[in-house]
Amino acid sequence: MKQDIFGLTIEELQAALTAKGMKTFRAKQVFQWLYQKSVFDFSAMRNLSKADIALLEENFTVLPRRIAVLREQNSSDGLTSKLLLGLPDGNSVETVLMRHDYGCSVCVSSQVGCDMHCAFCASGLNGAVRNLSAAEIIAQVYLFNERLRGENTMVSRVVVMGSGEPMLNFDAVIGALDFLHREDTCLMSYRNMTISTCGIIPGIRRLAEQGKPINLAVSLHAVRSELRTSLMPVNKGFPFADVITAAEAYSEAGGRQVTYEYILLKDKNDSVQDAELLSNYLRFKHASVNLIPANPVPEQGFERPSRQRVERFLKILQKNRINATVRKEMGKDIDAACGQLRAKFAKEQEHK
């Protein structure tokens, strides 16, 4: 069996390569090719000898070369690209590149599927299959880095907001972010990283203990208990009021503003009453609200509110001095919602 070296630290890579007879300095060269130049084919690593390349090809593999792009969708404006990635074990995950005027960000998945079973989300239609490894999370970023190489740029921001609940795969997620933060890889600031959670309070507390200025986003989506429980079953174990308290403690510990994600669902959580209640819970908190008009998920039967109702909700929050914006929509024409592309692919495979 060949050893996959993707995601190893420089020290781990040195140990692996020298054990096969390579000189120590070669590990640094390979490391630079992988993580600074986003080159994953040993034969393209031009400062290695033919003998070294042959040794590498005989003994090692690199994960991004073992991942298949099963589907690719690009938005008509050229700003968003979504990939459905086939992992070596046959599972698949989605990842999305978004181009902004301040750089490129990637939304990564942390699990294959999701066990949160949020009523409006396609990611949890079939539950969670398994956690992703740190290397599999890192690879989602580097597959786009490889594509951006010709533009002489790299991904500068990462959002752990794809399929899965990051706090249920905490060690791998933090391991991946620490790796991307390294000076000899992406040199990505922790301030350019965001972890989104449905409200797993122990995970929020563990993140606070890390002492790293990582942005926290909380998927809230309702502030009426029965409604939130019907939309997000996680509310039974971690009631939203307790989640807000934990998030505020995280904010106070690190000085970082918490973002509350709020998907607006027609005639479900978009009323004047809902806007006033949300304002009451977040008043005087170091927080902002990101309003997200729902991407329709046909399997779940939810609709998007009218633009007028979205604007009404926003104005109520702003009137109550809550920092709120409506998310700029990207990739609306390419199955933008988490899990949609994977679910569509799975359905196609069933009918073959």
Rank of each mutant, 00 (worst) to 15 (best):
L56R: 07
E348Y: 02
A176Q: 05
K352R: 14
P88M: 01
R206D: 12
L187Q: 13
R321P: 00
L264S: 05
E261I: 07
L70F: 00
Q140L: 02
S251T: 05
Q273T: 13
F120Q: 06
A247E: 07
E72G: 04
T18L: 09
Q32R: 15
L282I: 05
D41L: 10
A241V: 13
C114D: 10
S219K: 06
Y35S: 01
G162R: 09
E311F: 12
E329K: 11
M232S: 06
V108N: 04
R157T: 12
P64Y: 02
V106D: 06
A128H: 10
D41G: 00
N169D: 10
Q349C: 03
F179K: 03
Y262V: 03
V129A: 13
D184M: 09
I10V: 12
D333S: 06
I10R: 15
A172N: 15
E209V: 02
I138L: 05
E329G: 10
I334L: 07
L177C: 08
I174T: 02
L56V: 06
R283I: 06
L314G: 10
G21W: 05
G331S: 11
E183A: 14
D274L: 02
F313C: 03
P88E: 02
P88C: 01
M98S: 08
A44V: 05
D178F: 04
K28S: 15
Y260L: 07
K37E: 15
P239R: 03
L168V: 10
L56M: 14
M330V: 13
A139C: 02
N91A: 11
D171T: 12
